[in-house]
């Protein structure tokens, strides 16, 4: 294939990846920004979203679009509830100690993974896309559903942005992020804000999971890679910075697509991981962010 269509394809793929990454990484970044904790179970919430979509598709008869629409709403809600529960039962009790949180969320991720294995099973399960149309370019075909992913992701991120800027909840979140003690003094229910943020972060991951599943499949170990990629995005973008995270998601989504055009994909992965480690060492505020050192 000539280089131009090759690059076009890599760009399209990069954009799709960037959209999914944007959602998962924003969830992670939000939680870190407000609560100052790293949620290692984030990838499992993503997986639960995908499994939820499969469950909806199995239980709800009729056109796949119906069950998909239901999944897009119900799955994140359930996952969010679960996350809020985990926050109340565990994270609050260890007082959001950063290190203890990492260890606890590793524990949560094992539990979620194994429960899924026991109920959902070890196989990868496919879900029908809500619509199916293959767009033919002169050189290659491309699934129209992937454009839908990009659209939904952009819409969701825009909504999140507006919410953070203009809603009361956003204000509370920003206040808590800015100064926890003062927020407490002003009567902001910090505990509840934390639970809400943790749930909201998980919901972002779950939405990404639902979106992705008609394109790939639901599988109980699928959360691992998005977790690592989101880590990378969040760090490069500057922990806790939303615009930085968005920029980094696009940058990394695109460069991952383009890099693996020219190099071995494993080598590309090595390079990007190493880059992230070095960014953290030498430029801990991230390439874009102004957020403080952790």
């Amino acid at each position: 294939m000539d280089i131009a269509p090759y690059l076009l394809l890599a760009t399209l793929e990069g954009l799709v990846q960037a959209s999914v990454l944007m959602l998962t990484a924003l969830g992670l970044s939000l939680v870190f920004g407000v609560m100052r904790v790293v949620n290692v179970a984030h990838g499992e919430f993503y997986m639960l979203g995908a499994v939820g979509a499969w469950l909806c598709a199995t239980l709800i008869p009729g056109h796949p679009a119906i069950s998909f629409a239901v999944a897009l709403i119900v799955a994140p809600l359930i996952v969010g509830l679960l996350a809020a529960l985990a926050d109340r039962a565990i994270l609050q009790r260890i007082n959001y100690n950063p290190e203890a949180t990492i260890v606890s969320t590793i524990g949560i991720s094992y539990i979620i993974q194994q429960l899924t294995l026991m109920t959902f099973g070890p196989d990868a399960r496919a879900v029908d896309p809500p619509f199916y149309y293959n767009i033919r370019f002169p050189w290659f075909g491309y699934s129209s559903y992937k454009f839908f992913i990009i659209g939904v992701a952009v819409a969701l991120v825009a909504t999140l942005w507006l919410l953070m800027k203009h809603s009361k909840m956003g204000l509370l979140m920003r206040a808590t992020q800015y100064d926890r003690e003062t927020a407490l003094n002003f009567g902001i229910p910090v505990g509840r804000v934390y639970s809400a943020v943790f749930a909201f972060g998980a919901m972002m991951a779950a939405v990404a999971g639902v979106l992705v599943v008609p394109n790939s499949q639901a599988h109980y170990l699928m959360g691992h890679d998005p977790l690592l990629m989101s880590f990378i995005v969040v760090i490069v973008g500057g922990l806790g910075s939303i615009p930085g995270t968005i920029a980094a998601a696009v940058l990394i989504g695109l460069s991952d697509g383009l890099l693996s055009v020219f190099f071995s994909p494993t080598l590309a992965k090595i390079a990007s991981t190493l880059l992230v480690a070095l960014v953290l060492v030498f430029k801990p505020q991230g390439l874009f962010g102004k957020a403080g050192r952790i």
């Binding site: 294939m1 269509p5 090759y6 394809l9 890599a10 793929e13 990069g14 799709v16 990846q17 196989d123 990868a124 496919a126 050189w139 290659f140 491309y142 394109n215 790939s216 499949q217 599988h219 170990l221 699928m222 697509g257 693996s260 055009v261 994909p265």
Partner: peptide, 26 residues
């Protein structure tokens, strides 16, 4: 996700031989 590897299939290919394992094969 595999789409970005697929352009490496040359146009004059007569046979594609694939062997993939793992949950993402579908």
């Amino acid at each position: 996700s595999f789409t970005r590897y697929l352009p490496r299939i040359p146009f004059d290919t007569e046979v594609i031989y694939h062997v993939m394992v793992g949950p993402a094969v579908l």
